[in-house]
Write a protein that binds this DNA or RNA. Structure first.
Lengths: 122, 122
DNA sequence: ACATTGTGCATGCACGATATACACGCGGTG
DNA sequence: CACCGCGTGTATATCGTGCATGCACAATGT
């Protein structure tokens, strides 16, 4: 459970949890077959309600990254290295499309965007 | 008033209006000194409430892109070409920072991001 | 049975979106 | 010059939706 929750962020808490665990799974930091912490324990660690954790877990299950067994726990879906890369790119591309739409609405061309990226990406 | 509102978008309506007008001003499509449509007229055209338009106008004023005169109307702030470019980059960079944080959370390096960008940016 | 796990329901609160009534500014008219 | 009407932005009260929560219920395994 290496999660950082920002109370100042405009994103809902359950989505912050979802995104960070999602990233950790797709980076291979959380191995398939192992289980996630019980929602109660996670709730205590993260200082949030059980239900907030559950909503994050539900999103993860909807994305096919974990599966739930009532009474037992939640387990990480086993993925091959190729599948992880594939899902990671899918996820990033989906977000990137709307990001690009925003940049383009300001009339920026591809090379301008790349130039700005280089100045910010440390 | 060349605005497109998406009801399926997760973004609030007033923010969609704000972003699009903001972009049009900073691209020079809306010249300084000219006035924006009255909020009532804009509300009819955009099929939204007066107050929703007002909230968008307030955001524009807070960003220094327009100024309001009670009883007269709302007018676009006069900006030099350099100021427009500057503000445009400021705006885009602010958004780009959080975009990059997202990409990096998935472990992507700068060159991978650029490669993905090239495949999507048509 | 009991302890541990996930699930479902009812509540409080913040925010987006709305309609209606109010205040300010300008210009025509007596 | 005063007044009133029209067009402008402004403020108040209300409704619906979604985030976040606590508490009680169901399922699993020892």
């Amino acid at each position: 459970m290496n999660i950082l929750i920002s109370n100042t962020s405009e994103k809902p808490i359950y989505q912050q949890i979802f995104e960070q665990i999602s990233a950790q799974i797709l980076k291979g930091e959380l191995q398939g077959g192992y289980s996630l912490p019980p929602i109660r324990q996670a709730a205590v660690e993260l200082q949030v309600s059980i239900i907030t954790v559950k909503k994050a877990w539900e999103e993860l299950e909807r994305s096919g990254l974990i599966y739930t067994v009532t009474g037992k726990g939640c387990f990480i879906t086993e993925l091959s290295a190729e599948e992880m890369i594939q899902k990671r790119h899918e996820t990033v591309l989906k977000q990137m499309e709307s990001d690009i739409a925003y940049y383009r609405s300001f009339g920026l061309r591809l090379e301008e965007v790349i130039e700005l990226l280089r100045t910010v990406y440390e």
